[in-house]
């Protein structure tokens, strides 16, 4: 069995041409949008047909609903998200002083629920959490990704970079093996994108629903036959820190559509 996996790894390595190490040159940074078929691009471009907008609209309603024992809505503190949340997602993950760790937007929404609303946390990948995260991130659509400069984030971002470059799983591939070294080539029928998290939460046709960056990262880990990190794991937030740094300057697209 082990020999079989070795064989599979060699086959994938051959397909990917792992020996090349081109990376992403300056000026070559491109959103996954650019790698999609025109039909899929059109789906994202029209808000009236982009199914991700269903979650954004749900998030808009949830934003104004009082929650928890505190009986207060997001809007009770943050008022009109169109103003107060503009640009926020473009600089997340942020440093969370309470835990001494970086926190992603979904984590912040749940910590707000716990502390301010005194409500139960929303489950990972629940429609409500995806909807609120999508609504808040949507307020930054069209804005460039500008990672937080907080020096306390540095070592977590470094860990994220290390994870991105570490070979894992039975296929013995790192994120970088595909997305730095072989972007633009094909894996089966699909083009390998540069893996910039510009549009999360996004509507993936494969999922037939909206999902988070963490769901996508777990997908990739399963794809290389590695044990995926759990939803909410510190490693996934560290990875997001690195990915956002790597995507610096690209525009937020939420809700994006991907195949």
């Amino acid at each position: 069995m082990h020999a079989l996996w070795r064989l599979a790894a060699v086959a994938v390595a051959a397909v990917c041409g792992i020996v090349s190490a081109a990376g992403i040159e300056d000026g070559e940074k491109r959103s996954g949008f650019d790698f999609m078929a025109p039909a899929t691009q059109a789906l994202q471009a029209d808000d009236m047909s982009n199914p991700g907008m269903l979650w954004v609209l749900q998030g808009e309603q949830l934003w104004q609903q009082a929650q928890g024992r505190a009986d207060v809505a997001c809007s009770g503190c943050h008022n009109d998200a169109r103003q107060t949340m503009r640009g926020v997602a473009a600089r997340y993950p942020a440093f969370d002083a309470a835990t001494g760790r970086p926190i992603d937007l979904a984590g912040r929404i749940n910590s707000c629920r716990a502390e301010r609303q005194q409500a139960e946390p929303l489950a990972p990948e629940s429609d409500a959490l995806l909807a609120l995260t999508a609504y808040v991130t949507h307020q930054s659509r069209g804005m460039p990704i500008t990672p937080a400069t907080d020096a306390r984030l540095a070592r977590f971002r470094d860990n994220g970079r290390r994870l991105f470059q570490s070979r894992i799983g039975q296929l013995d591939l790192s994120c970088a093996s595909c997305h730095d070294d072989n972007w633009g080539k094909r894996l089966g029928g699909s083009v390998i994108p540069q893996a910039h998290p510009t549009g999360y939460p996004l509507y993936r046709l494969e999922w037939q629903t909206v999902g988070s960056l963490q769901r996508r990262l777990r997908n990739c880990m399963i794809g290389v036959r590695a044990e995926p990190f759990a939803f909410g794991a510190a490693e996934l937030v560290d990875l997001e820190l690195h990915l956002m740094d790597r995507a610096r300057g690209l525009l937020i697209e939420t809700p994006a559509v991907r195949p």
């Binding site: 009236m48 047909s49 199914p51 907008m53 269903l54 037939q208 629903t209």
Partner: peptide
């Protein structure tokens, strides 16, 4: 007219 609804089908 365009109409869309959230549903898993």
């Amino acid at each position: 007219i365009k109409a869309m609804i959230a549903h898993p089908m």
